[in-house]
Design a protein around this nucleic acid. Sequence first.
DNA 1: TCGATTCTGTAGCACTGGCTACATTATGCA
DNA 2: TGCATAATGTAGCCAGTGCTACAGAATCGA
Lengths: 149, 149
Amino acid sequence: MDQLAAKPSHTPAPTLKENLRKTREEHARETAQDYVEMIAELIASQGEARVIDMARRLGVTHVTVIRTIQRLQREGLVTTQPYRSIFLTAEGRRLAKESRHRHEVVVAFLESLGVSAAVSQSDAEGIEHHVSRETLAAFVRHLEKKGGA
Amino acid sequence: MDQLAAKPSHTPAPTLKENLRKTREEHARETAQDYVEMIAELIASQGEARVIDMARRLGVTHVTVIRTIQRLQREGLVTTQPYRSIFLTAEGRRLAKESRHRHEVVVAFLESLGVSAAVSQSDAEGIEHHVSRETLAAFVRHLEKKGGA
DNA sequence: TCGATTCTGTAGCACTGGCTACATTATGCA
DNA sequence: TGCATAATGTAGCCAGTGCTACAGAATCGA
């Protein structure tokens, strides 16, 4: 209650330090979600997830992919062996499934607002990482109201 | 049209390399928007924008703020003099105004879905940077339909 | 005025995630 | 089989954004 005398649109009262301190780890978490989701997709569609395919899809070099995969392995989301394809751990699969669901909800929601399919996809990739449980639930409610009876 | 044989929820067809290559500069741009918006707010409410106030609001040390301000100065968004407060350039003011508007639209939109005020504020800070012009327009339409006649 | 405190700034470290250049392993085809 | 190519991996660079520790400037009160 000291430097919050004037309270502008930033600093929504309760969230002060905790909220922004997480920036870095949040960013790392976003990357992790995108990666495990892509790995799951590749395994489903290609039978295996290879570094080179991920690099091409992400538009980065294979080096960047390898280093991120190394981090994900440290974090227990994937397993790899030298010169072999990438596998998800149980935790990795869980995260991939959750991420995919969230992604699909956001896309469907944007489309329900009249946003084009292409833009819905594109925007969802950024937005999905910032949608809280409460907001996601609101999206689902909105979809049910529109789509369902 | 080569590695897009299978097209999962990632890679929204046209955006391949360009889309993800921007990640880094996009992140830098997000930070720039948050900073200029906060600087504008501080100038409006306190009369001046000081490093220490920004650091406290952002929940980071003053060092982080100083380094980001240095970058923004390189990019022509702010001007500073040693041991003086921070000023926005014309371009900085333009960006601040645009960012604020976008932020307000996103917050109002989330609230219109029944999301609580606090969560709307919090989620908006993440979401607003990933909302395209088209999606923002859809948000506005939705608000007008709900609020207006 | 001057000394303590506060604010601003610099140096240097860590980590993420871009990159190029080069090394190593697998693979496929002649 | 063996070599060319493709895929994977390592080393080392850069920028951004966190941090602590310390240095320098400004400010405020005794």
